[in-house]
Nucleic acid binder design. Structure first.
Lengths: 223, 223
DNA sequence: ACCTGGCTTTTTGTATCCACTTATCCAATC
DNA sequence: GATTGGATAAGTGGATACAAAAAGCCAGGT
């Protein structure tokens, strides 16, 4: 209920919204490959509507960087180059760092314990299956950002997460388990507990920037 | 030519693009007031097209935060609360700070001199008229960000600038002249010259955060 | 055999049309 | 006299239809 992160927990009240959520979800799950063309008619048929709402959804997805829209040439899934992936992580590092810094004065013990529990669930998800871990991980970062109570900041960060999510899934499927992840996330919580805003900001920045090189291995040179 | 900042220097190849640029420009210039309704038919007639491309343009503008789109209730110009204005500036501070930090290793003397000239032109624009200063100011920040050579980062920053531009114009119209502005921008250039990435990042952050309170005075409590 | 030019097919972009939601205005009732 | 209900008007969202652009294909030429 408290999570206002854009990617989660919305249900469509209009056809365009439904199309948007449908496509976004498919993209986040990696159902389409980078460079692949999204045919409006097919997607429209899939959801049971005409091409028009789908086209409008494309506009939004394009402005969030999930697809690329070229005049008269249709809609293709946006692939990331290694440089672009690093760029996303650089932006994430400062934005989520900011979120943490702003969150510090607002944090109480109850919320920290909730994060502890979330970390446990992440760990279990990592052992049991695979792609569920990614969802938990998103939730972990999303919840911390939500503590900042900055709607626009939260929205931007969420949009960046959506772009990298498919690569997170690929990464998780190839490596057996992100061993350092648990420690790093525990360190983030510890930094939040410390109450030192600047310190926590730096810890979050380091955590995010440290993840990028691992993911970069799995970027398909599809461009 | 070098500027790839999204808000500038594009011309429409498609009707939707034309509508988008037309409306964005009008919003940046403050032609519409926050809360005002944008009637698709009127705008379509204004540019000479049907409502459809205008509607698609609305989607993009909405996802950039320039308008608000509510189901069956049309498109209204997004107004900022004081909190939201501060939030934008907080985001700008870390993003433009990042851009500066990344730009440092790439800067050569020639580009610094170009910035010096731009500062001069800003000063002249500030003396002569008014709203031209805002455009120069955007160009100043845009050019520095462009040095980072991070397309997505540049795009995000540009989008944030578009949101606050109308408030910058109001602000400039009320105060006789931003006296501290020249010194602050000169300090930013000096920090770039220093070659110290972290230092330059902090100078840019302070410059941006310092501007926010002045603008906040002129936010109409329209929500 | 390869390149080039024009034709056909496919797909995109825009306009018009219809259904449904929302807002406005007036009247009736409390 | 104020408030609530309904009827009417306006406007939005979505679908279908049409025009224009691009991609693919085949034939002819070099």
């Amino acid at each position: 209920m408290s999570s206002s992160v854009a990617s989660f927990g919305k249900h469509a009240s209009t056809a365009e919204e439904e199309a948007y959520l449908h496509i976004q979800r498919a993209l986040r799950l990696g159902r389409y490959k980078p460079g692949e063309r999204l045919i409006p008619e097919d997607i429209a048929a899939e959801i049971g509507m005409s091409r028009m709402p789908v086209r409008e959804a494309f506009r939004r997805l394009a402005s969030e960087g999930l697809v690329v829209l070229r005049p008269n040439r249709g809609c293709i899934v946006a692939g990331l180059t290694v440089d672009e992936l690093y760029e996303i992580f650089e932006m994430r590092s400062v934005l989520e760092g900011l979120a943490v810094r702003l969150a510090i004065p607002r944090i109480d013990e109850e919320e920290l314990e909730e994060l502890d529990r979330l970390l446990e669930r992440m760990e279990r998800a990592g052992n049991s299956g695979g792609s569920d871990w990614v969802a938990r991980h998103q939730e972990f970062h999303g919840r911390i950002c939500a503590l900042s109570r900055r709607p626009k900041l939260i929205h931007q960060i969420s949009a960046l997460h959506a772009v990298i999510e498919p690569y997170m899934r690929i990464w998780f499927d190839y490596v057996e388990k992100p061993v350092s992840a648990r420690e790093e996330h525990a360190a983030v919580i510890a930094a939040l507990r410390s109450g030192d805003a600047r310190h926590a900001e730096l810890v979050m920045q380091d955590h995010i920037l440290g993840t990028a090189p691992m993911l970069a291995e799995f970027v398909t040179p599809s461009r």
